[in-house]
């Protein structure tokens, strides 16, 4: 899986490529509009992450070119601009997702994976890890082939974990993934805690192992014990 990261802030580009490389993606970076333009005409990418504001051009133009020469490429916009017009324009010219800076790398990772899944299999596939199997189209979860019933939030939480295996996730990123960023109170962290407790219980009940590991002060990690 090849990913192109178009971002002029070198440090941020590096963080994104490091993080995504750990997840097994092959990443390339373009720091300027012209680099990006050259790369998309030479190579083929499964997914492109595009910053809208570049020193020598706008991300919108890259997306337009990309749509012309490689329509199958998934496109995620990362922008500091949080305006509705930008979001609508991005979707209109063919991007698949829009994330506002600052974002969580874990969230970006989850969205890249979900985008690639949708692109490659038409959204019609199973996601399997150890003894957990998730039927995505039907939103059903099986532990050791026994179906377990999860609430909507628990299901979203599990999917977020499965997209970020072996990765330390902050409580804040989980809360934001589940409720969006208008839920900014301390209560949302308590709610994360209670949802995690329920999810853990439901997996263990069906004979699964306790995959959710707490990291003191930071959050949680989904990993094989």
């Amino acid at each position: 899986m090849k990913i192109l990261v178009v971002e002029d802030e070198k440090g941020l580009a590096e963080s994104i490529t490091d993080y995504l490389s750990r997840e097994g993606f092959v990443c390339e970076v373009a720091n300027t509009f012209w680099q990006a333009d050259e790369k998309i005409s030479l190579y083929q990418y499964d997914c492109t992450i595009v910053d809208l504001t570049l020193p020598d051009g706008t991300g919108f133009d890259i997306i337009k070119t990309l749509k012309k020469i490689a329509a199958a490429t998934g496109i995620i916009i990362i922008s500091a601009r949080n305006t509705l017009e930008d979001k609508l324009k991005g979707l209109e010219i063919g991007s698949d997702d829009y994330m506002t800076k600052p974002f969580h790398l874990s969230e970006l990772n989850a969205r890249v994976k979900s985008l690639i899944r949708r692109r490659n299999f038409g959204g019609n596939n199973d996601m399997t890890w150890k003894d957990i199997r998730v039927n995505l189209p039907q939103r059903k979860v099986f532990i050791r082939d026994a179906e377990t019933t999860l609430s909507k939030k628990e299901y979203d939480l599990l999917l977020y974990f499965l997209s970020n295996i072996d990765v330390a996730l902050t409580k804040e990123s989980i809360a934001e993934h589940l409720w969006g960023d208008n839920m900014d109170s301390a209560d949302s962290l308590d709610m994360v805690y209670s949802h995690i407790k329920n999810l853990r219980r439901k997996i263990v009940e069906k004979g699964g192992k306790d995959y959710i590991q707490s990291i003191y002060g930071i959050g949680y990690k989904f990993t094989a014990p």
């Binding site: 994104i16 993080y19 800076k101 600052p102 790398l105 902050t170 930071i218």
Partner: peptide, 15 residues
């Protein structure tokens, strides 16, 4: 927002 995004990303890598 851009430097803040960088701080966030670096922290996430660090942990």
């Amino acid at each position: 927002q851009t430097p803040l995004a960088l701080i966030n990303a670096r922290v996430e890598q660090f942990i």
